[in-house]
């Protein structure tokens, strides 16, 4: 195995960040909440990449999942319900040096913030977006979300929800300028880590739908999947997710999937009986908006003065000599 650069530095005794460096306030999620697992995986990714905590920003909306930044030891911006993406875009625009992560819920992303999600995909700014999909509104205590399966009983659908669940994967595979889509459950830590890690390494807008357990309001939602590994289809690739021998034994349904293949990605997502897990689509060649819009050089006050004066010249009436 080749030695990764960070690993090399670590061995060489360069300053090292430990997991604690990425820990913030004590999480207040319910016991058994899948968000805890996501937090652990994310902190491991940060350590693996040895990201300087001051160079990381976690941006979130509002929801249980959006409390995430508080629990990180990095910079964080706990924003508004649905608006994490435009805030993150604003942050990234002039700060390519910052590692930007976004935590958003299924309501946050697919309902109130849906328009921003479509356009964030289009802008393709370099950031890692985790959509914590618990199929329910957690923070506001049990209302149906767009991704709730039909028949979900909640406080706003006491006799069962009537509409077919919204499929975020099918939707996102239809967005223009797509560059990275993955799906992973929170309860397979190894895969969760791998997917978030790959998403972070991808240069562009990396969207991960994380199937997240909410024992409080969706107690048995993912139970069948967890009990029955054959309900899951793991997509592996040499440049994507790889199965450890242990996992390969437990999860018999796995197939090679080239993330570059959009048609196959759509086919899998649209027709698979099982829950696809892994990197569904990836295109490393989509240009990033912040690169297209970055200043061509450093602008000094002198440059601003000259630029302004050149404009003023266009409108100036000079006195007669």
């Amino acid at each position: 195995m080749t030695v990764r650069a960070t690993e090399f530095l670590r061995r060489a005794g360069a300053p090292q960040h430990s997991l604690e460096d990425y820990a913030g306030c004590l999480p207040r999620w319910c016991t058994g909440c899948g968000d805890n697992a996501i937090l652990a995986a994310v902190q491991k990714v940060c350590r693996e990449e040895q990201l300087p905590p001051e160079k990381i920003v976690f941006v979130s909306g509002i929801g249980c999942s959006s409390r995430f930044p508080h629990y990180m030891g990095s910079y964080g911006f706990h924003g508004l319900h649905g608006r994490a993406l435009p805030i993150a875009e604003g942050i990234k625009m002039r700060r390519p040096d910052l590692h930007v992560f976004v935590n958003t819920g299924d309501g946050d992303c697919c309902s109130i913030g849906a328009a921003h999600w479509v356009h964030a995909t289009r802008y393709n700014m370099n950031m890692t977006v985790m959509m914590h999909d618990n199929n329910i509104y957690g923070l506001t205590k049990n209302q149906a979300s767009p991704t709730s399966p039909r028949g979900t009983r909640s406080n706003t659908t006491p006799r069962g929800s009537l509409l077919e669940a919204f499929d975020p994967l099918q939707a996102t595979l239809g967005f223009s300028n797509l560059s990275f889509v993955a799906q992973v459950p929170d309860w397979i830590p190894d895969l969760l880590f791998q997917v978030i890690h790959e998403a972070h390494k991808h240069r562009g807008f990396s969207f991960i739908r994380i199937l997240q357990r909410c024992p409080e309001f969706q107690a048995n939602r993912w139970e069948p999947c967890m009990q029955d590994p054959s309900s899951v289809l793991i997509l592996t690739h040499e440049n994507g997710v790889q199965l450890s021998p242990v996992l390969a034994r437990a999860y018999k349904n796995h197939q090679e999937h080239d993330p570059a293949d959009l048609v196959e990605a759509r086919r899998i997502v649209g027709t698979s009986e099982q829950l696809p897990v892994g990197i569904i689509y990836r295109n490393p060649n989509v240009p990033c908006y912040e690169d297209m819009r970055k200043p061509d050089r450093l602008y000094t006050p002198e440059d601003v003065k000259n630029g302004l004066n050149a404009e003023l010249d266009k409108f100036t009436i000079w006195p007669r000599d």
Binding site: V57, V59, F77, G79, L80, R83, P86, I87, A88, E89, G90, I91, K92, M93, R94, R95, L98, H116
Partner: peptide, 9 residues
């Protein structure tokens, strides 16, 4: 929101 993000960073 974009402007707020830019200002923040």
């Amino acid at each position: 929101a974009f402007a707020v993000g830019s200002s923040y960073a």
